[in-house]
Simulated assay, not measured.
Amino acid sequence: MDKKNALRAGAVSAGTTLMMLLMTSPALALTRDDGDDPGPGLSIGETLGLYVVLPIVIFLVIVGLVMVLDKSDRPQKKQA
């Protein structure tokens, strides 16, 4: 019985995915819309800084704040 349900769920998922792909229109990225005014592009350094370095720095700041502001009274492990 479980195999039949799994096959049915797979068929429904595949059918839904196929229908969504068929119903979406192409992106038409080369066709400009009225009022479209793209700005200057980002360099490789700016892109890496914005999408790689900045999230890592923000994550490390949050981790640091959590570690510094952690006021729980956990017993420290003794080194043997």
Score class of each variant (00 low, 15 high):
P55C: 01
L65G: 09
K78H: 04
G39S: 11
L21N: 14
I56D: 01
L65W: 11
D2H: 09
S13K: 07
S25L: 12
V68E: 03
K78A: 04
V52T: 07
A6H: 06
S25V: 11
G10A: 03
V57C: 07
V68M: 05
M19G: 04
K3G: 03
R8M: 02
D34N: 12
Q76F: 14
L50Q: 13
R32D: 12
V52E: 03
P55I: 00
L65F: 12
P38H: 07
Q79P: 01
I58C: 13
D36T: 05
D36F: 06
L7Y: 06
F59I: 09
G64N: 07
L50V: 11
L69N: 14
P26D: 10
T17M: 02
K71R: 11
A80K: 14
D70E: 08
T16P: 00
A6F: 06
I62W: 04
V63A: 09
Y51A: 05
A80D: 15
I56V: 10
K71W: 02
M19S: 06
L28I: 09
V61A: 10
D33K: 08
R8Q: 03
F59P: 01
L48I: 14
D36Q: 12
P75A: 02
M67V: 11
S25M: 12
L42P: 01
L54D: 11
T17Q: 02
L69T: 10
G15R: 05
R8A: 03
G39L: 08
I44S: 15
L48Q: 08
L60F: 14
K77Q: 12
S25C: 10
L22N: 14
M67S: 13
D37K: 13
Q79V: 11
T47R: 09
K4S: 05
D34Q: 12
N5E: 10
P40Q: 14
D73P: 00
L21P: 00
L69W: 13
T24L: 06
L42I: 01
G49L: 00
I44F: 15
N5M: 05
A6S: 09
V52M: 05
I62V: 13
A27I: 15
A29P: 00
A29S: 12
M20N: 11
G35N: 11
D36V: 04
L30V: 13
K77M: 13
L30P: 03
G45C: 06
D2N: 12
D33N: 07
V53H: 03
D2P: 04
T16M: 08
M23L: 15
M67R: 14
P40V: 14
Q76E: 15
